[in-house]
């Protein structure tokens, strides 16, 4: 049989095929074409690239968060430059951070603040707990800026302990163990044994190599006044101090009582009384036998008179101030 007609309709028509064509043609697709333009508008766009991009973003974000996340009670080295040795990016107790001549490291703790470690500095993390973050500055310079509660952040130096009272300060320790504290905001409680020097914003105090703490002195005081205060334990040059003291220096004078003799205490009382009148309960004669409690009530009016901000205190801390 010739299949040409079945194949392409050519040649002589096959009777059966042509009959079936006529018979079955009624079933040919009769439906009109859909409005594909409307469908095209409604069709969902390919979303997987968006999903992949979103997933990638999430991964990057999570990794980023993990990279920058620091547990609240831990210290993370977030920046460093020059020669610097940082044992772990998140420091562990006992870790020692060292910097070279051009080195610097920034440590951050969410619960405390930032600690910038300057050149030629050695700092060891002693402990980091919720209510106590203690580091040891063996040598060099640190700059701390804290937001933690008073008493939480502590820096030990070979000759003194600096207790943060909510502030910003710079602390330097020389190779001999002495050093200097300069407070930029708030207060720092500098202690060594029975000695204490409460250093306010704008003031400095020194730690001598033999363990003496100088009283705080404002950085804008007269140079001779500052020198006399610095050397008072050795020179007792009270005359210079009295003559050059300003009202703002009342805090320095108040701190000097712990270093003065009985006779010097009376002189100091007179000058301080001129600058900020003593409370009624503090007598001229009482300071001859000075103890901290004798002048304790003078702190508040002096702080108020000199425009200093009050010390942030935890309960039981510096009662009476």
């Amino acid at each position: 049989m010739n299949d040409d007609y079945l194949w392409d309709g050519s040649g002589e028509p096959d009777v059966d095929v042509s009959h079936l064509e006529a018979l079955l043609g009624r079933y040919r697709s009769a439906a009109p074409m859909s409005n594909f333009r409307r469908v095209a508008v409604m069709r969902p766009r390919r979303r997987w690239p968006l999903a992949v991009a979103a997933a990638a973003l999430i991964v990057v974000a999570v990794l980023g968060v993990l990279r920058i996340y620091t547990p609240p009670n831990r210290w993370r080295a977030t920046e460093s430059s020059g020669a610097a040795i940082v044992p772990h990016s998140i420091l562990r107790a006992g870790d020692v951070v060292r910097t070279g001549a051009q080195g610097s490291v920034r440590l951050e703790s969410p619960g405390v603040g930032t600690l910038d470690i300057g050149a030629n500095t050695t700092v060891q993390l002693i402990e980091s707990r919720r209510n106590r973050h203690r580091l040891a500055l063996a040598a060099g310079t640190i700059h701390a800026k804290t937001t933690s509660m008073p008493g939480v952040f502590v820096i030990d130096t070979p000759r003194a302990r600096a207790i943060d009272l909510g502030c910003e300060y710079t602390l330097t320790v020389s190779p001999g163990g002495g050093g200097a504290l300069r407070v930029l905001s708030g207060w720092v409680d500098l202690t060594h044994g029975y000695q204490q020097s409460l250093v306010p914003q704008g003031a400095s105090a020194l730690m001598t190599a033999d363990g003496e703490l100088t009283v705080p002195v404002f950085d804008d005081a007269a140079p001779r006044f500052r020198a006399a205060v610095r050397d008072f334990a050795r020179t007792h040059d009270l005359a210079t101090i009295v003559s050059l003291s300003r009202r703002r220096d009342a805090l320095t004078l108040l701190n000097l009582f712990r270093l003065t003799t009985s006779e010097e205490s009376v002189i100091l009382f007179d000058r301080l009384n001129q600058l900020v009148p003593a409370p009624a309960l503090i007598s001229r004669e009482a300071v001859r036998d000075w103890r901290p409690a004798v002048t304790e009530l003078w702190w508040r009016p002096i702080i108020q008179a000199t425009g200093l901000i009050a010390i942030k205190k935890k309960k039981g801390m510096f009662d009476g101030l």
Binding site: Y27, S29, A30, A31, M33, S34, F36, V39, R46
Partner: peptide
């Protein structure tokens, strides 16, 4: 059925358009 074939033909192409990508 022929009627269904007509309807489903349209559906096939609508589906095809939505999944063409």
């Amino acid at each position: 059925s022929p009627a269904d074939a007509d309807d489903v033909t349209q559906n096939v192409f609508i589906t095809a358009l939505t999944k063409l990508e």
